[in-house]
Design a protein around this nucleic acid. Structure first.
Length: 263
DNA sequence: AGTACCACCTGACGGC
DNA sequence: TGCCGTCAGGTGGTAC
């Protein structure tokens, strides 16, 4: 489920593989992933160009083409990138493929088709048009505080709201709240300034730790809940069975002992 | 501004 | 064996 740490990992993968390679050909296997761009225009935009820089904002990855356009990738739930030489290594749900003059390919693979690929002239403009909040791993304490200022909703939906903060989804909101020992349905307005500050530092810590682990739960520290986020999962602190509850239509995993329900 | 609910999509899985 | 309901969840729409 690509959230900020996963997308940052894709960014580093693209940087290490496809950057500065000349594009020979682009194939669109499923044009439904293209958002407001015709396949022919996408091919034309990529043709004979190179990715010369990348940028990530929240769950969006931008790859700069050397004529000032940006390729914009969103990974939905099941999206990923794969770089490979022989076509046999093509991923199963390939939607878009770029072939470079060095013979390698970069694929945008997306099983459930919730992701999207588009073009943008300017990243800031794109971010404004989507009304995205500040990137959850690139903001100061005062920006964080301001983002939550005056919010009346509950913690989990607020953390997942891309207009407030960009980058956190269902899995990492559970992780942050578990580390905070706060219930996902507690209202934002009930946090003290000290708790709000701790929410900031915990958010930074959880996301940075996940980025450093390349978003792979098997590499996460023992005290993280994410590897235990399933029906038979137990609390990494006390071995108690985890509880699955529904908060704003999403499954939330909590430790009932460490994250007691609010009054 | 917030919430509840629905739709999009595919594949896995459990029940019968 | 096979059919059906349910679930996973990011985003975006609706109605209230």
């Amino acid at each position: 489920m690509p959230e900020l740490p996963d997308v940052e990992t894709f960014k580093r993968y693209l940087d290490a593989t496809a950057l500065h390679q000349s594009i020979a050909e682009t194939e669109v296997f499923n044009e439904r992933v293209l958002e407001g761009v015709r396949p022919a225009d996408m091919k034309k935009a990529l043709s004979s160009r190179q990715f010369n820089a990348t940028h990530r904002h929240g769950k969006y990855l931008f790859a700069h083409l050397d004529d000032a356009q940006w390729l914009v990738l969103h990974f939905g739930m099941t999206g990923r990138l794969k770089y490979y030489k022989v076509e046999d290594s093509r991923p199963q749900h390939i939607r878009l493929q770029v072939r470079f003059t060095n013979g390698y390919h970069l694929a945008y693979d997306c099983q459930r088709m919730f992701g999207s690929v588009t073009l943008a002239a300017d990243t800031e403009q794109f971010i404004q048009r989507k009304k995205l909040g500040p990137d959850a791993l690139r903001l100061s304490w005062s920006e964080f505080r301001q983002a939550f200022q005056g919010r009346r909703g509950r913690l989990k939906p607020a953390l997942m709201n891309q207009h407030i903060l960009a980058g956190i989804g269902n899995v990492y909101s559970d992780e942050i709240l578990f580390q905070m020992e706060l219930h996902p349905e507690l209202s934002v307005a009930r946090l003290s300034k000290e708790q709000m500050h701790r929410l900031y530092t915990t958010t930074q810590d959880v996301l940075q730790t996940a980025v450093d682990a390349r978003a792979d739960p098997e590499r996460f520290p023992n005290h993280f809940i994410t590897p235990h986020r399933h029906d038979e999962g137990t609390c990494p602190r006390d071995g108690q069975p985890l509880q699955r509850i529904t908060v704003s239509g999403r499954s939330a995993y909590i430790c009932p002992r460490h994250q007691p329900a609010p009054d």
